[in-house]
Design a protein around this nucleic acid. Structure first.
Lengths: 355, 355
DNA sequence: TTGAAAGCGCTAACAT
DNA sequence: ATGTTAGCGCTTTCAA
């Protein structure tokens, strides 16, 4: 509260009997400092609580940083459009510090395109990379490449912990499944059938979806629940077989609840429910896509678990930028809250931008 | 993506044929500029997209800002301790820009103390004020005073819209009540009694609590629900009458749900429920106090609606600082999401600091 | 290896 | 009313 006046480099220089330039050199160990000078400066630094003025630093160094953001084409999926929005918002807050974000989009339905883009990112020689590494196999080799070029990377949405990114932003998928189970268990008191629906093109993705399923199942197992749980894997191409399987499932009067593990799957399942006019089946889905919100308002979807892609990406840029400009240590992992969206709190989430 | 190189004051000066000093004067309309000069500079400014470099600005002006934060003594209530934490966190992020926060605590159980502190705040002549104006009557006169001294103020937690603060951060209380109703309605399918409990010293506060109650009741009215809803106003001094009323209420086997409108009331009600060993009554309460979390884990409390006091205060400082240092327009109102905390998503909220 | 000096973009005091 | 100048605190180049 009291002592205004921060310690500056000049102060240190004076105390150590050297010049500001020398202090700067030891602060950033740029070398070219005699052992004595180094010793004297370090001594002062230990005695004193010096906090560099980051404002002056960015102005003085006049350095700019470029962050490459590698995500699926936002035009292909509203989920990724939200990530894009988060990136934009973060970028706006960091331009002051001369950090700029260069987006790189790959084709959500073409894994090879990720390789092409990952290569392009490397060629662009950014100072840092934010990536949603959704195609494990294709993208894996690139992280060695990035590391050998000394380009730090942070993950969001999907983790690949083996390659230890600077940071990962996402959610606890197992726990997410448990929340889904809890919500169904809350609103359905009787026994009956429950179904876990994985509606997704991509089998590889299923490693993550299985994590949700595991949480979902274990919740009921722990409760010794009488619910019978089954799983359906469905491509989202709404072919004849898809229709048949869905209709078969949903027409069973004994079906009490549906846990849909993907965001697009949520409204696909909901539209079936609506068509068949089944409104006593509890449907728990994912994410605040416009279509999902509509079904939530109408009551076809009962709960959405919000993965908050916007905030994930927003934080991703933030951590990367903090690392770059402030050399601030980033959390190796940031697992966001498992937000439960209902009909009544929906609007409060829509109204508040990033939260 | 392309044009690096921002436009600087020097550029404008050159284009307008004046000096940087003159440009600076028109930019901040400090006067002492001839009409011609002013015209020429403004012309350039219109033609060009000049964005002042805020980094250079703060460094150059070497100005410091002081924000006074007026909240109840955090030691008296964990709810306010969370606000305090939010203020601290925001302050840490703004010290770069030379904004400092001076906390002023008043006695939560002594309204007069707010007047004393509000006066002290005025004497301190801060550049801005963040306040939780919970004692309407006592604090009202001060806003004219602050305004006459040209000190901007933002509210959080409680709004007094008549005095139009720079910004208000809080939640939609009516909707909050509806969420409470929804949660009970979801888990209780049969008819029976429901009770709204206002457990609070302060009758004045009830104007806010009534807003929640209104939402709660209207939800069921719209549904033509068979639930019978009653209200109990209880001081939190746990006297004999308090005990009696609670016991009477809770011992009714027909009681299905409890909506407790205050954060401390939540665990007080929960402990009664626990003592009486009633575990088929749905209890919806407020806020992530440690005691509440414990009851949520044990299952005595079924849902908490999170008012997120930490984030409220955090944003309050942010808006004030944005206003002060960046002259950034602040939202007149920021209503935070109505977060639903359950046993299964609780930990994910605890783990993620501010979200 | 070191210090001096210029500069980042803007502000503000000071001559004129 | 206007331009010049000296900072703000740090970085970086350039002589020495």
């Amino acid at each position: 509260m009291l002592n205004r006046k921060n310690i500056t480099i000049k102060d240190i220089a004076r105390l150590a009997g050297v010049s500001a330039g020398t202090v700067d050199r030891v602060l950033h160990n740029r070398g070219r400092v005699s052992t004595e000078a180094l010793g004297r400066v370090n001594k002062i630094l230990e005695e004193i609580d010096y906090k560099p003025n980051v404002i002056a630093r960015t102005l003085g160094s006049n350095k700019t940083y470029r962050i490459a953001a590698l995500i699926p084409n936002p035009e292909q999926d509203p989920y990724w459009a939200q990530s894009r929005a988060g990136i934009r918002q973060a970028e706006a807050e960091w331009t002051h510090y001369n950090v700029h974000v260069e987006p790189f989009f790959f084709d959500l339905y073409n894994k090879e395109s990720l390789k092409v883009v990952a290569e392009a990112v490397h060629d662009a020689k950014p100072d840092g990379i934010l990536i949603a590494p959704i195609f494990y196999h294709e993208v894996l080799p690139f992280f060695e490449l990035y590391r050998s070029s000394n380009i730090p990377f942070v993950f969001f949405n999907t983790n690949i912990s083996e390659v230890s990114p600077l940071s990962f932003i996402g959610q606890n998928l197992y726990q997410s499944g448990r929340v889904g189970a809890e919500l169904i268990n809350l609103s359905q008191h009787n026994e009956g059938r429950l179904a876990v629906l994985h509606i997704d093109e991509d089998i590889q993705n299923s490693v993550h979806l299985l994590e949700k399923e595991k949480g979902f199942r274990e919740y009921f197992e722990e409760k010794n629940s009488a619910f019978k749980i089954e799983t359906l894997n469905l491509g989202s191409k709404e072919g004849a077989s898809f229709e048949t399987q869905m209709s078969n499932l949903l027409s069973d009067p004994n079906l009490k609840g549906l846990f849909v593990s993907t965001s697009r799957g949520s409204f696909i399942a909901a539209s079936f429910l609506k068509k068949l006019n089944k409104n006593n089946i509890t449907l728990v889905g994912y994410d605040m896509l416009e279509e999902n919100l509509q079904h939530l308002r109408e009551g076809t979807i009962n709960f959405l678990i919000n993965q908050n892609p916007k905030r994930q990406a927003f934080l991703g840029i933030n951590y990367m930028a903090d690392h770059l400009v402030f050399k601030k240590p980033t959390p190796t992992q940031d697992l966001l809250p498992l937000e439960v969206i209902t009909r009544e709190n929906l609007q409060s989430y829509v109204n508040s931008g990033i939260h």
